[in-house]
Write a protein that binds this DNA or RNA. Sequence first.
RNA 1: CGGGGCAUAGCUCAAUUGGCAGAGCGCUUGGUUCGGGACCAAGAGGUUCUGAGUUCAAAUCUCAGUGCCCCGACCA
Length: 577
Amino acid sequence: MKLSRYLLPTLREAPADADNVSAQLMQRAGMIRKLGSGIYDWLPLGLRVLRKVERVVRQEMDAIGGLEVSLPVIQPKNLWEETGRWRIYGKELLRIKDRKEAEFCFAPTAEEVITDLVRRDVRSWRQLPIMLYQIGLKFRDEIRPRFGVMRGREFLMKDAYSFHPDEEDASSYYRQVYEAYKRVFSRCGLKFKPVEAQSGAIGGSFSHEFMVLAETGEETIVSCSRCDYAANIERAEIKDAGTAAPPSSHSVEDFPTPGAYSVEDVSRITGEPKSRFLKTQIYMADGKPVMALLRGDHELNEAKLAAAVGRPDIARASEEQYVKFMGCPVGFAGPQGHPGLPIYADFAVKSVGGGVTGANKADTHARHVSLSRDYQVRGFFDLRQATAEDPCPRCGSRTEFFKGIEVGHTFKLGTKYSQAMAASYLDKQQKPQVMVMGCYGIGVSRVVAAAIEQGHDADGIVWPLEIAPYHVALVLLDEADDGRIRPAADKLVGELESRGVEVLEDDRDAKPGVKFKDIDLIGIPLRLVLSRKTMDAKIVEFRRRGLKEPERWPLDQQVADKIARMLSPLHTLRTVD
RNA sequence: CGGGGCAUAGCUCAAUUGGCAGAGCGCUUGGUUCGGGACCAAGAGGUUCUGAGUUCAAAUCUCAGUGCCCCGACCA
């Protein structure tokens, strides 16, 4: 490809609204252009990278028996009502109406559509298991899109769905997908970590996230320093601390705390550490209040509370609800004196013998509030957010925290969707059985951004070979006044391309500095230079992106062979399909 | 949804008290240059986000709308 005929609008300065490195570099390198909040045009160079990632994903999905399909982007409401997600999904689901006022949504994912397809066309145990996948645009109406295509509203996702005769088959296939995902991200040149994850709105019994390690990541990973335990902090388990401390020998005693409603404020007044406090938070479950009780120095994890309560749809009580059920202003409730209220206590609450907490009266707190004697709990649960002090739940060793970008997510769904949508098959005994499902996503456009977050320097992007837009940049200097350059370039490009090497030829009428800067910015891994100087010396100059010193190679047919050998790991991998 | 900010050339940004619409980079043409974003000269490029209002006069002030950004709440 000749750069003189390409659309490569590089920018010297980053657009003012690009809010992280990858968004800045993708726009500066002429890969994408922002069209609106969270929506982007992909230009030729950017689209090439996207297609490279797609190719890796496609090969690895095909290698584990996946069948590619293409499902509609506009999906009818009735399917979403069958699973209840038309209501549950919330505002992130972009809804539209057609001319007849019929309602549709723009696909954020496709469990409903795929399950509908399979329930109609798969009837027999002989057809199972089956895995279908697609690579297509998704839309989620994010409240706050940011970081370029990393958290856009429209994005390219690979979504795969597998259907199995039973749990065992689904589990063993899940492990195959897990291994395939590791190959995908390795081939894309990423440093990543699979972690245990919260299954969230997609649902299902368990799941893993594939995290690209990057300081700028939005997710926090808790990782054991010794064993291989790793989890999203939202999910990270905390073990039961042990037996309950004895109740205080003093009886409950109220004391005034005007205007001090946070643990922080009251701790400052009494001088007692926050770990001596009982922190209450009121949630609504199915219209009824429940109390989450934590130690004052801990933070609630809502997903864990939802699991403990057994309702995914819990919500923090409004101020009105709080006042109505607790009988005091927000910040002054305590667990004592609410006999009908279900109290879900975190394990660590056991360590608080007689604690400081709200007195259920305005501007008043209470001390020596003790478990059993002064209040009863529904039970003890793992309710809080993990901290750096919490040991590994598996082996008890020290844990470390990392930041990560979620590029893939696998879910073992069980029968959540197949049950709701009656996706069943006839087994060998001619008995109808509900299919068992798994679903598996990869944020293809996010992989592109994540690769840049991990691979860049002061000059621009540094692509991994497998997903670079081109393998080689051939920079021509002095072409206008040296007749030897053009034929030498044509010959070299021909030799390279015949070996499957992708060449971007910078034949623009521009100064050397401009060319070198642009080629560095767009991150092509290998660079060759032909100029009057190199022609005089009968050499070609070779340099790897990121290395300072170029090498001088004799200009002969071995150049193409050497380059092809450098790329040979890619070809080996490509023979997977 | 709440609070705040911004909107001027392709990009980054100026424009004094309300008084002629500007610069750098990029683009076009010519010339001098030519191995890490050169220089000179001449150009092209604007509904100052949209609409209404105030005023002799609005990029500038007021109102409404739209878009974008940030913070918070909410949420895969």
